[in-house]
Simulated scan of single mutants.
Amino acid sequence: MKAILHSCVIVILMCTTAIAGCDKDDDDAANPSNSAPNNPPVAKAGEDKSACETNFTFIELDGTGSTDPDRNITSYRWSFISGPPTYTLTNANVATAKVENLTTGTYVFELVVTDAGGLSSSDRVEVKVNSVNPQEYDLDISFTSLYNYTNDYDDGWGGNWDLTYAVATGSFSLGNYTVSITESANEIDTEYDSFTYIEILFPNGYFRGESTIKFKKMIQENGGPVKGTFNLYQLSCDRIEFIGIPADLPPLKVTGTLNKATKKINLRIVGKAIY
């Protein structure tokens, strides 16, 4: 009889605990303040930026890195904090805004993100605009590179070319550089109509242009001396493009050799550029 009574007490206690738990859940539903607390969002206005002053300069302000632990950001607001009074801010109420019509100076913009619970967070980004005063630059680089020649290359867009490609790295007074050469030629072996593109990338810009050198013709004629020009048509300052500025400069001179047996080119590019 004692064992039976002991079992009954345990059952009653378990039932009481379960009922108390249910009452607590009902209280949480009736009183949202008893639920998990709302966490504030974290605004991220992106990395500081720099640009060169031109009449078409624009900077993208990127707040897409902002987060909310509750995944509940409801608004973005960009605003001007300090800097020159000349600017135009658009798309200020979305994550990615655009600033244009900038002038020389340092701007500061602020991003405020707000969540569904009314909590907010802010972050600022600095935009530095440098005055553009292109100067002539004496370019003189020499490099050796393996080249790759592909007969009847399929470009994936319905075109077929004989493609020659080479890339090399080095350093000059503007920093480390990477030079790439690409020639797209007619796929018929006896024709040499081609477009040869040269690009020199360095830390804060690039030189781009077209070359008169026909690498396919040289390869089919077993290599030899290289002689041609490199006509600049684009340059960059802090990732902002300038098209047409180099037009008055004489073409850069390109000399060197192409060795078909080793598949190597030795080139030197010399002349006036603008930076």
Rank of each mutant, 00 (worst) to 15 (best):
G158A: 03
K2N: 13
K216P: 09
I274Q: 13
D162W: 00
G118I: 06
G256I: 11
G65K: 06
T88G: 00
G209E: 07
N186W: 00
C52Y: 12
A97L: 07
F58E: 11
T67R: 01
N259C: 00
N91T: 07
L235S: 04
K128Y: 10
D27P: 00
Y192S: 04
T144R: 08
M1C: 08
G228N: 08
K263F: 00
I198D: 01
S79Y: 09
G170D: 11
V42F: 10
T144I: 05
V132H: 06
G271M: 03
D162Y: 01
N204V: 09
V127Y: 03
Y76I: 05
A97C: 08
I19F: 12
I240A: 01
D48I: 02
A45P: 06
S122N: 13
A247P: 04
G21I: 13
T57F: 01
T86E: 15
N133L: 11
L119E: 13
T169V: 09
D154L: 00
P37T: 10
G244A: 05
D140F: 02
I274P: 01
W161T: 09
V179A: 12
T17F: 10
T114W: 00
Y192C: 01
T150I: 15
G158K: 02
G228D: 10
M1N: 13
V226D: 05
E199Q: 14
P32R: 08
T190M: 02
S66H: 01
V254M: 10
G224F: 08
K24V: 14
Y137M: 07
G65I: 10
N91Q: 14
G117P: 02
A3H: 12
A247H: 08
S7G: 15
M218H: 05
K227S: 15
S50R: 15
G83L: 04
L5C: 07
G244L: 05
T182M: 09
L163W: 14
V42A: 12
I240K: 08
L61S: 04
N186Y: 00
N38H: 06
D155L: 03
I265A: 03
D25K: 13
P69E: 10
M218L: 15
G46K: 01
V132R: 11
N231I: 11
P84I: 07
S7I: 13
L119K: 15
S79Q: 14
Y197W: 14
Y149H: 15
S171T: 15
T229Y: 09
F109W: 08
A36G: 03
Q220W: 10
D115F: 00
L146N: 15
F143A: 04
E110H: 02
I243Q: 07
S75V: 09
C52E: 12
E191V: 11
G117H: 05
G118A: 06
S194F: 01
D26A: 12
G118H: 03
L249Y: 07
G223M: 11
N101M: 06
K98I: 15
I181Q: 02
E110F: 00
E110T: 10
C237I: 09
I198G: 00
Y206H: 12
T178Q: 15
Y197N: 15
D68L: 02
